[in-house]
Design a protein around this nucleic acid. Structure first.
Lengths: 193, 193, 193, 193
DNA sequence: CATTAAGCGAGACGGTACGTCTCGTCTTTTA
DNA sequence: TAAAAGACGAGACGTACCGTCTCGCTTAATG
């Protein structure tokens, strides 16, 4: 990579190369295979350039993760709660188990178990926003009068998405459409009028 | 630790010292602070002694984890499904968030996201057995006729414990008794006769 | 240093700041403590400004060294060989061991052991001229008829100043007036009539 | 290099490989080309092994220099002061300008100008011993009665070897046999009876 | 009762990656 | 158009652990 010094600001070229290299390494060799040296070598970038802009390798991965979750997991309003939820949970399962950004997420979530700071940043930077999006179908239904206005949205979300994350992160069981549909059925059976 | 050579069999003394040192280091410095060198130094044991008996540091932690989960999380039969489930989920929450073995479990679960082999061993060695125990209240209820005989126990467990693990591993939200009780209510509302 | 862009030639201000900073750093932290980065920071000058005008840090030091040797070590003609030599050797010793430019010289002479190019430049730029000056008392004496016309001035100089440099650069022994006077005595004993 | 751990003491094999690699690098690339990384790579040794046993690269070179000076520059007693001195000075010149250990010495002497600690160790470890050896012909002559008993041996040595070191380290002039012989002549002319 | 062999502590070894430092090059903006 | 600013690729620094390998001691069963 031809470097191009610049008085005002960093090299976007280098930034992109680093993020891609990190992503690639995670996909190819797993989290332990993502090293600053490896990223630098693969990106054709000096180690110092990485340390200048990112405090650690998880920061690189966090930035590489970027808006992937929002892009993949923003629900659409079909006007029907059941349809909205079934579609969204199915997409969530697919994102977590079948995409590259999903793999990055799992790696970050795993690392967050060892690193409370990362946990906080992952939650504040990505998970809280995702829970907002996850809750949209419920809020739309409340507005339509299809769900009680006093529904505890947070608890409802935990019951809907919790089992999906549990299968992905803990048991490793495949998350089938039947499984997610059943979660929605259980929810509708209890709350929908 | 005074070493005592021995022709037949390993030193139980060294084994205990290693397991305790690993546990202590995890509690004090987190997963990254658990190193073979650190364990050896703290246990007063030679590195080779650790490598002789455990392939890696996660194996030490797995062994230190031992039967803790079974000991803490074996349900009792009160003859009432609601009581059984509420008690058990509450204990699960306490175990995961409020005990030392729970911290070890979280660390191992985190590492398992980076290490598929560890994931398999964690599931085969501990999680599958735990799911058996988790399912006991349901099976007792089926035997009593309080739940339908064709209940999909696996899916039911995912819906009951999934949200608990989700809060612990993903959102970091406290898992209150009200939360676990609500999970049981939702389950009973749908399935119990 | 407030930078003052300038379309007419280089900044004498910057040049002076660089030379002084280099001198100061050498005195304070030794040769290894003289870095381009450090000089730039201390002089309030951009690194590029240094690289534009000096190929390396030894060039900066060489220029800082400048005419110091000539200024300190130009002999005066007292009309007496013994007096001339004794005074000159004594001044040489003082210059090498007791002055800032002497310290710069020692650093450059040391570096010249690792860098043949520097050695050549040091000799051509400073040492050969100094040897001319060192030889003046001898030439005056030859003109006066106090020394034979066929005296090998070069060898004579080596015998006179060599031991002084040797003590400074190799043994570290103090170079006393008694020592330099004795060098002159030995020389006069052999050559003077 | 097959490594062979050992409870009692270090690997002589590794030690030799390091010393040779350092010597070779100095000869091939000069002092700046001697780096710990380079030595490690060339010797097939881990960097840590070097850091374990030597505080810095000059320590490696000092040890590589070892007894070379003593081996090359121990005078023999021919029973005649002039012969002894002429032979010895000639050998000194050859050692300093024409041998590998001589090159190491020049590098170390150069570095010593930047590093007072190294200067001290070089003097205490090698130069003081060498001056003892250099002085032997004078002491033998004193015992024989060929030199006055009250001769200041130190000053005499400075006058004899100083010009040689001066030519080697400062002027770069070749040190011919004629030059060293002339030094001896000057000395004998003044002191010998 | 001496021999023998396994487990142990100690720790040196070849490696890999860490995070820091300085190098010398390059661009941009200002005066 | 020189100067300040400072990002960049490069690569050595010294440190921390990794997992492997003797080594010499201690101990308990064996002959």
């Amino acid at each position: 990579m031809a470097h191009r010094g610049n008085r005002h600001g960093r090299s976007e070229e280098a930034r992109q190369a680093v993020l891609e290299a990190a992503d690639d390494l995670l996909a190819e060799r797993g989290f332990a295979g993502v090293t600053i040296e490896g990223i630098a070598a693969r990106a054709g970038v000096a180690k110092q350039t990485i340390y200048r802009w990112w405090p650690s390798k998880v920061d690189v991965l966090l930035e590489a993760f970027g808006e992937d979750m929002a892009q993949h997991l923003t629900p659409e309003d079909h006007g029907d709660l059941g349809t909205d939820l079934r579609t969204h949970l199915s997409r969530l399962a697919e994102f977590l188990t079948g995409t590259d950004p999903g793999a990055v997420f799992r790696a970050l979530a795993g690392q967050a178990q060892h690193d409370p700071q990362l946990a906080t940043r992952l939650r504040d930077g990505h998970l809280s926003g995702q829970r907002e999006r996850d809750g949209l179908p419920l809020r739309w239904a409340i507005e339509r009068g299809d769900l009680p206005a006093d529904l505890d949205v947070g608890t409802a979300l935990d019951q809907l998405v919790g089992p999906v994350y549990y299968r992905v992160l803990v048991t490793g069981t495949p998350v089938t459409r039947a499984f997610t549909d059943d979660l929605v059925d259980a929810f509708l059976h209890r709350h929908a009028r």
